[in-house]
């Protein structure tokens, strides 16, 4: 009865297939001299044989067909989800674009307050920004929900959103002049802005 615990551990190493030669020697010697452990080992061997004997069971004949029948029908959403899983960056980019466009489109709808980005050297009267004769505005001007009348000079870009530009003559604006009165122009303007800002932050 007083057998070292190691003996049973050696038996299990044997079944795990990693019994070393010295261990095997020790186990054999003990089993030869100890009937209790020999019986224990024999029972384990039998148990393993029974388990292996019982292994063979096959799936019912119609199993595969039933699985295929129960499969979720391939839907567009499943395909989309798979696509998103495989192209996370593209998904993120298009999602960003979609969100930006929809929020821009709705922000276009709500006509905000009149605003202007330059207030030096300009006169503001009834939602109209006037660059007086002889004055030079250095930098870009953005007018929202109002118009601009340029009689002097602008050394930069002029952008009018929801409004009109009036110019006495060409050549008074050194940069680009743009009027934005369409939702698409508005979106395009925002994308350009964001893109330029992104470029600047990279530079």
């Amino acid at each position: 009865m007083e057998c070292p615990k190691e003996i049973v551990l050696l038996m299990h190493s044997y079944f795990d297939g990693d019994l070393q030669p010295e261990g095997e020697q020790r186990l054999k010697e003990h089993l030869r001299s100890c009937a209790a452990c020999a019986a224990h080992f024999h029972e384990l061997k039998k148990t393993v044989a029974f388990l292996q004997y019982a292994a063979h069971v096959a799936a019912p004949p119609s199993f595969a067909a039933k699985v295929m029948e129960a499969m979720p029908k391939e839907r567009k959403t499943a395909r989309l989800r798979r696509f998103m899983h495989r192209h996370p960056l593209l998904t993120a980019a298009s999602l960003f674009l979609a969100l930006t466009l929809s929020s821009l489109a709705s922000s276009w709808g709500e006509r905000g307050a009149f605003s202007v980005s330059a207030d030096e050297h300009v006169i503001i009267r009834d939602h109209t920004v006037i660059v007086p004769k002889g004055e030079t505005v250095k930098g870009d001007i953005v007018v929202r929900n109002g118009s601009i009348r340029i009689e002097g000079t602008v050394d930069g870009d002029v952008t009018v959103i929801h409004g009109k530009k009036y110019m006495a003559s060409a050549g008074q604006v050194t940069g680009e002049v743009e009027e934005i009165n369409q939702v698409f122009e508005w979106i395009w303007y925002n994308i350009k802005e964001k893109f330029n800002r992104a470029l600047q932050s990279i530079e």
Binding site: V8, F15, H40, H42, E43, L44, K46, T47, F50, L51
Partner: peptide
């Protein structure tokens, strides 16, 4: 390995005498 060891011993109690 430990679980296999215990599993085999538990099964031995039931199947080892057959």
């Amino acid at each position: 390995k430990t679980r296999l060891h215990r599993g085999r011993e538990a099964l031995r109690r039931q199947l080892g005498h057959l």
